[in-house]
Design a protein around this nucleic acid. Structure first.
Lengths: 331, 331
DNA sequence: TTGTAGGCGTTATCAC
DNA sequence: GTGATAACGCCTACAA
């Protein structure tokens, strides 16, 4: 592999000038010299060594993305959106999959810090991720969900409480008197907000029976939980799920239980993955503004002051009524 | 951030010894010295700088994984399996998503080479990926599909032709006389193998009408293509799809067309993603041996001689008959 | 405008 | 068993 020294020698100049050419600075280079350098580099097939460059400059031009479960299309789509938003800048997005394991998330946290990513986009499996570690290492973090501690990292999220309330009211407006909240597996800031919104909607509709059930954020586990729910006593008439994947699990469970959606059971999801459009039936959901989130994430991380002054933004969501809940509510 | 120099100073020794301690070699260290070094490191919160380490050692302890589409669960599950297989070795898996774009794949190729990943696992969107680039850079590659040029990289795959034949024969055994092969979007070694297996099966069943249709490897595009197929003249009775995602698109199209699966249309997929178990109806498919592939990939890449002597392995697959094709064939 | 040289933090060779 | 010290390849302050 050719090095800057080789190029300099061939172009009859110094490594400093080669560096100036390839970085467009910090010093200017005479046009003729620049041409000689570029020609030499092309001939030798020179490519700057990213490792050496990073070691020297202190920047790796890479962004870490930690997601709870890459097999969940929401996170895959999120990764795609972030890469699209960041891609043009020559930054590499390192996707780290926690596989729904807090331990794995911890390992990735270490690993990304050790590899000195310039910044991190985090979707945690825990309510209290290791923000301190990132902070101490000088790595700015933007979380894509509500945070219990807002001092060590930034966040971009939607108002889960408002979204949950909107979704639940939709189900109630369809006249359903027995509703279930299918929440995430553990207590967390986000889970609490879902519950608060759900409860508030129910409180506004006298005589409605409601309860909360928990499940992993996976189609399979949600299907199991839902199966039990649907075949047990006091079968609910409607379910609000805190992720699309859980909702798909519920659709499957309904199918297996011989129930028709939405005739026997109304289902609403949350995330707005593309699969909602091709599920059977099409899924009513809360659409997260993935592209806007991705854009803002990249913008925020480009501003190096966020480490000291975290930013917290709440973006708008869109509620989309489709077949799985019987379409738009009457009235 | 504390450096090895700081640790050495505090422990009253040299950076060389610190290095020996943290790498368990290549020289031994006296027990007492080792303890002093470890104590000093702990006190200072020392963590070796991965960049400097890589620059010096020439190894980054990272594996690049290039997938065509991270939003396709098959590739996400593959990533998970590879990470599981490699994870224990302290290696980081860098997941690069080509987003079904050859340009993007090219960019990732460059990027991973520049970042000096130790090796690459490749699932290409093209029939002729840039194997030469990797080879010239000294980066061993294992592809997880058949390769048109087997000299520059290794491959681990299943026998697509045999699998396609098996799947098609299954459909024919159910008595269907009009079958369609829903293949990938472009001609490629893999696509040719699927077609060969499909054709061979059809050739063995006189009087069967067959044709091939192409679609992107995505649920949505497959749904569009299938919609046209199912509502056009001479509607097929059975479809063999070269990926599960395409098959799910066909299921959706059938649903939209008012057709019942498998009563009106039999569908078979390929990949064996977990979603096959919770689709409506459950999907008959060719199960790829993901865990075994992942294990072999990691083993092969651990053996540094593969660069000069590529290895090509064909693993076994399993055909799994489920509801979407009417279950096991009679007889 | 360009060259020299020190530094980034490790690793590993070579003496002692 | 351990300590200097020269790489690894690049960046950039400083000097010219």
């Amino acid at each position: 592999m050719a090095t800057a020294r080789d190029v300099a020698r061939k172009a009859g100049t110094s490594t400093a000038v080669v560096s100036y050419v390839f970085n467009n600075g910090p010093r200017g280079v005479a046009p003729a010299t620049r041409q000689r350098v570029l020609a030499a580099a092309r001939e030798l097939g020179y490519r700057p060594n990213a490792l050496a460059r990073s070691l020297s400059s202190g920047r790796t031009r890479s962004i870490g993305l930690i997601v709870p479960d890459i097999c969940n299309p929401y996170f895959a789509e999120l990764a795609r959106a972030i890469e699209d938003a960041a891609g043009t800048t020559g930054n590499l997005l390192l996707i780290a999959d926690s596989a729904l394991s807090a331990d794995q998330e911890r390992r990735h946290t270490r690993s990304l810090i050790d590899r000195q990513v310039d910044s991190v986009v985090l979707v945690s499996v825990r309510d209290e991720p290791d923000l301190r570690e990132f902070f101490d290492a000088g790595v700015p973090v933007v979380a894509l969900h509500p945070l219990s501690d807002r001092r060590l990292a930034s966040s971009i999220t939607i108002d889960y409480e408002a979204a949950a309330q909107r979704a639940t009211e939709h189900l109630l407006a369809h006249g359903h008197r027995s509703v279930v909240l299918l929440n995430g597996p553990v207590e967390s800031t986000g889970a609490r907000q879902h519950r608060a919104g759900f409860d508030r909607a129910v409180a506004g509709a006298p005589g409605v029976r409601s309860r909360m059930v928990r499940s992993e954020i996976s189609r399979h586990h949600a299907a199991e939980v839902a199966q039990e729910l649907l075949q047990g006593p006091d079968r609910p008439r409607a379910v609000y799920c805190t992720t699309d994947e859980q909702a798909f699990g519920v659709l499957y469970a309904a199918h297996r239980s011989g129930l028709s959606v939405p005739a026997d059971l109304a289902v609403v999801g949350f995330d707005g993955t593309r699969n909602c459009l091709v599920s059977i039936p099409a899924l009513t959901t809360v659409q997260q503004p993935m592209e806007a989130m991705a854009r803002r994430v990249v913008e925020i991380l480009a501003d190096r002051t966020v480490l000291e002054e975290p930013v917290h933004e709440v973006l708008g969501f869109e509620f989309i009524a489709r077949d799985s809940s019987g379409g738009p509510a009457p009235g």
